[in-house]
Nucleic acid binder design. Structure first.
Lengths: 255, 255
DNA sequence: TTGACTCAGATTGTCAACAATTCAAGACGG
DNA sequence: CCGTCTTGAATTGTTGACAATCTGAGTCAA
């Protein structure tokens, strides 16, 4: 998130008000090419199209996206900071492959954080503010039913993030965001679609408890959601090991 | 931490055992120059020698350290991910200047996490494992008394990190590490040396409670430590605004 | 056959020149 | 005097060429 601020238009200091015409292209959809590429690769990884440990050669990517290698290099650097790829010195970038142990640790950490935030939210939030969360659950449900695994994972992550955001602690939200990214990768690599379909019901239940204001119970319900997600991981997923990078990435529609 | 793994010797895959002579310079203290530069700048910032918001021009740094601009560029990128500097597109890198609001958020987040980890540690740790923590407190005490502010802050951070590490949750430790880095910056910029001198006593007290195994009480003591740190911030510290970058950075001994 | 060495081919790391952007100072008209 | 536009120096962004490094196949002796 920190890095996301430094590129694109967020950083641009807007003048307090428009005084005459300043520049011609004030409305930039100039969206940074590096962000686009990075999102594209991220989608491919999170869509489960790329096997963990797969190498991402700079030149292949630079040809695929039609930009110079240095640009790709910068993108890979960014993805490395997001823990989606792993850069080994003089050897290149590879799709990250989180271990079982690491996955367990991530879920442990999330339970610690989300237990607390859920409790806070339950005590402070107004029912109307939960509308967004209900939407996420609905979106997630649709996604699973349509077999859109990638969207399902995204909606699931955004549900948790939105919930945390209601606790109004910026630092915790940033921290959780990182953990959620990592979780999304884990789900993409090792999650079981069938198991996922049971999640929306659990989230609906969680929201009902939140609305009733039962904070401790809500915290426990959140913990159960996370336990369920963790329980249904399968660390022996199969990937097609020799798929062509170009085909795989092109096959994934940009978000 | 993720990034720290990708440079230096950690990444190098050592052969399972030495078979004859492989390379001549097996013992490399070849330590990556970028790491050195990055540590140097970090020291200057955390030593409080550089004012928040100060610009870090690529060329000045490249002259100071005698390396090409691209190297500096990469270093600044890394420091940006560590939240020590802020990179604004087309405008360069600046020393980060966290706001009051942000500082409060950081401490809130840390209380949530460290409350739990302290409780876990108190329930599971053996007294002998606390030796390292006692050392940190001692080191911190010495540092404050000698007026070595930078070391004091470092020891303080490492105390908290070491405590968290005893809870054996890798993911939480990584997350806390980030928050501690940010806290160190905040203390360097806005902390009051006099107020800091009271900390070692508080930590000693905390450790005593941990040793007695009173987990809830320990968690509360940890919270009090964090509250005290937060309370004694002074957001109007004065910096010498026109110090020469070269002098300031050279004046700081590398760690 | 095994293990150590050698040597291309491929891939990543680094650099220095060039292009694009920002920022501050000055000119200009109202 | 205020706001706008112009201009140019300073700074950052980008590129393509070159250097350093890794990998793996092939060679050779034991």
């Amino acid at each position: 998130m920190n890095q996301a601020e430094t590129d694109g238009e967020v950083t641009r200091d807007m003048p307090p008000r428009q005084i005459g015409k300043i520049h011609e292209k004030t409305s930039d959809d100039d969206m940074d090419i590096e962000v686009v590429i990075s999102e594209r690769i991220k989608s491919s990884i999170l869509g489960g199209a790329l096997a963990p440990g797969l190498k991402l050669p700079e030149e292949s990517l630079s040809e695929i996206f039609g930009v110079s290698r240095s640009r790709i290099r910068s993108v890979l650097q960014r993805l490395a900071f997001e823990d989606l790829v792993e850069i080994k010195r003089n050897r290149g970038a590879f799709i990250a492959s989180p271990s079982i142990r690491e996955a367990r640790g991530i879920f442990d950490a999330r339970r610690v954080i989300e237990r607390v935030t859920t409790e806070i939210v339950t005590r402070t939030v107004l029912t109307i503010q939960l509308a967004k969360l209900h939407e996420r659950v609905k979106g997630q449900d649709e996604a699973w039913k349509q077999g859109d695994y990638r969207r399902g994972i995204r909606e699931l992550g955004e549900f948790h993030l939105a919930m945390c955001a209601l606790a109004h602690n910026q630092a915790l939200t940033v921290v959780l965001e990182r953990l959620i990214r990592r979780t999304s990768l884990i789900l993409a690599l090792y999650g079981l679609p069938n198991a996922m379909m049971r999640m929306p019901a659990m989230y609906t239940n969680l929201l009902a408890i939140v609305e009733r204001g039962e904070s401790l119970s809500a915290a426990r319900a959140m913990e159960r959601c996370l336990f369920t997600l963790e329980k249904d991981l399968n660390f022996r997923s199969i990937f097609s090991p020799n798929a062509e990078l170009r085909d795989v990435i092109h096959a994934v529609a940009p978000d």
